[in-house]
């Protein structure tokens, strides 16, 4: 369980997050949505201790973020940050193997190699294994970074806009994989999405952020309403209901 209590964050006096309280119980896919600049990435970075907490506290299972060691947290929680930029000239296979670092500490064993091989296959990266990251396409790179986070094999996986640059097949494939990890593997997935339809289709729960606050939180059917689109996103797209699922007409 991820517990967030009274977390506020500001940059140069500008409030970015305002007093966030949120519980993310074990298991399930939670989609974090909200307009650009709402504070989604900031919240994810705070959970993953990439930014320093200014006030409030965050716990992941029995670990207290900011107090526990980076290594202990790395075995429990993985994050795929929003920026897909990696300047290093590494091969796809090497990158995915680095995802295992918290476990092997630089000496990958047979078990790590097995997981890397399985991950590469799962993300359809076998053919790209020996290619350099700066010599593949943007979507392929994004897939490799997602694979790296996946290979870390943690109970909690935070993904910040992982669908960027992915074609529809890759996007659906990744979302199905995450869905399976949550349902079958009991993993906890928190994923920032901009495509509300993807959120509605794959998430158990949607958390809406707006101007540094949690604006709404609940099951997709109850969250995706005309009010959300006009009130939070300031747009007037129409919502249809197909089966039981709300679909935003873009």
């Amino acid at each position: 369980m991820i517990t967030i209590r009274g977390v506020s964050y500001e940059i140069q006096g500008q409030p970015i997050l305002r007093d966030i309280d949120l519980d993310l119980p074990r298991g399930g896919v939670t989609a974090l949505i909200g307009p650009n600049g709402a504070g989604k990435s900031t919240l994810l970075s705070l959970i993953a201790r990439l930014k320093k907490l200014q006030s409030g506290r965050i716990g992941v299972d029995d670990l207290e973020v900011g107090k526990c060691s980076d290594r202990d947290l790395a075995k429990v929680l993985a994050i795929m940050p929003q920026s897909g930029h990696v300047s290093a000239r590494l091969r796809v296979g090497e990158l995915v193997e680095m995802g295992r670092y918290p476990w092997h500490q630089g000496r990958p064993g047979a078990h790590d190699r097995e997981i890397v091989a399985e991950t590469l296959t799962r993300f359809s990266l076998d053919a790209l294994r020996d290619r350099f990251l700066d010599e593949i396409s943007g979507g392929q790179r994004q897939r490799a970074l997602a694979a790296m986070a996946y290979a870390q094999g943690t109970d909690y996986l935070l993904l910040d806009e992982p669908l960027n640059n992915l074609d529809i097949a890759a996007a659906r494939h990744l979302m199905r994989l995450l869905r399976d990890m949550a349902t079958g593997g009991g993993k906890t997935i928190v994923i920032v999405l901009h495509d509300i339809n993807f959120a509605a289709a794959f998430a158990d729960r949607i958390v809406v952020m707006h101007e540094g606050r949690i604006a709404a939180d609940g099951a997709p059917e109850t969250i995706i309403t005309q009010d959300l689109l006009t009130g939070v996103f300031g747009t007037d797209a129409e919502i249809l209901t197909l089966g039981a699922r709300p679909v935003v007409m873009v």
Binding site: A74, P102, Q152
Partner: peptide
């Protein structure tokens, strides 16, 4: 080489 953030998130 992955950047400071990614390195830390791997527990380095």
């Amino acid at each position: 080489t992955l950047g400071e953030e990614r390195a830390r998130s791997l527990g380095l």
